[in-house]
């Protein structure tokens, strides 16, 4: 298990990370979501030991990454651009990885490249999508336990994006590794993430499982025979979106039996469950302040 404990970092007198706390289990895909400048990249770089935090720790199992350098072989950070490798050919890059990581498996790497029809060229000659596939394939061929991917889908077309996501899914399924992947667009990751960590101004704003939220939260449109009952409007466990005549539209963070009984008792003509958008889920989970999107 990976544990991030009270991680804080100030760069140029600006607090970039503030008391970040979370854990990641093996086989989990975590989406790290936040606006540009929220601190996503700094967090990932700190988690892999590139940046030293002012306070806090990052532990992989029982050991801290800042104390035990060998851990870095099992934690791979993939930056958002392949710039560092651009003068290498693909084979040279593979040789470099092989010299750094003893567990690098060349045949796995070759296999992935063949599947996506990528020939041995200089990395700067590749398309953006191909670059992304090469850097990810290099990283995955190491067969590490933890992967920290910085915006791997940024700027890619739909097909390349889907290839990248599929590569990630196959890795997690095949080897039960964990992936923490950042993006400023939640929509790209909502399908594949077990949990979402929202980060804003260097702080964790919310950690949630979308699947769980979808199971517990509800958005209801209720048409009453008579007026919308005042007792409904006064309930603390729901958020009223609007009331038009005899129709009330509201969301509840948790759909309780009591709520259903309450609605039923007020003689509704129609109770309809309305699909919740991502924005709805965030709004109801965070309590009316999801201004992030």
């Amino acid at each position: 298990m990976l544990t991030v404990q009270q991680l804080s970092k100030t760069i140029d007198r600006q607090q970039v990370l503030e008391d970040i706390d979370f854990t990641v289990d093996s086989g989990e895909i975590i989406a790290l979501v936040g606006r540009n400048g929220a601190g996503k990249t700094t967090l990932l770089r700190t988690m892999v030991g590139i940046i030293r935090p002012d306070k806090g720790d990052v532990r992989y199992g029982p050991s801290s990454i800042f104390e035990k350098a060998e851990l870095k072989r099992d934690v791979i950070f993939v930056p958002d651009s392949a710039d560092a490798l651009k003068h290498y050919t693909i084979n040279e890059a593979a040789a470099l990885y092989e010299s750094i990581y003893p567990s690098f498996n060349r045949s796995i790497f070759r296999e992935t490249l063949t599947r996506y029809n990528i020939d041995n060229k200089k990395i700067r000659q590749l398309s953006k999508g191909q670059k992304a596939m090469v850097t990810l394939s290099l990283a995955f061929a190491v067969q590490a336990k933890y992967y920290l991917l910085d915006e791997p889908t940024d700027g890619l077309d739909v097909v390349a994006k889907s290839d990248v996501l599929k590569l990630m899914i196959a890795q997690v399924e095949a080897r039960n590794c964990s992936i923490i992947v950042s993006s400023h667009q939640l929509h790209e990751l909502e399908r594949i993430a077990d949990r979402i960590i929202m980060i804003e101004k260097g702080r964790v704003k919310a950690i949630m499982s979308l699947e769980e939220a979808r199971e517990t939260s509800v958005k209801l449109q209720v048409v009453f025979n008579d007026q919308v009952p005042v007792e409904l409007l006064e309930r603390k466990d729901i958020e009223i979106i609007n009331v038009t005549g005899r129709v009330a539209l509201f969301m509840a963070k948790e759909r309780t039996k009591e709520l259903d009984t309450f609605v039923d008792a007020h003689d509704p003509m129609l109770v309809e469950e309305i699909p919740m958008s991502l924005e709805d889920i965030f709004r109801v989970q965070l309590g009316g302040e999801a201004s992030v999107f």
Binding site: K166, I169, V172, R191, I192, D194
Partner: peptide
């Protein structure tokens, strides 16, 4: 991978 959703 087909549906591009989480294996879990």
């Amino acid at each position: 991978t087909d549906l591009v959703i989480n294996p879990n």
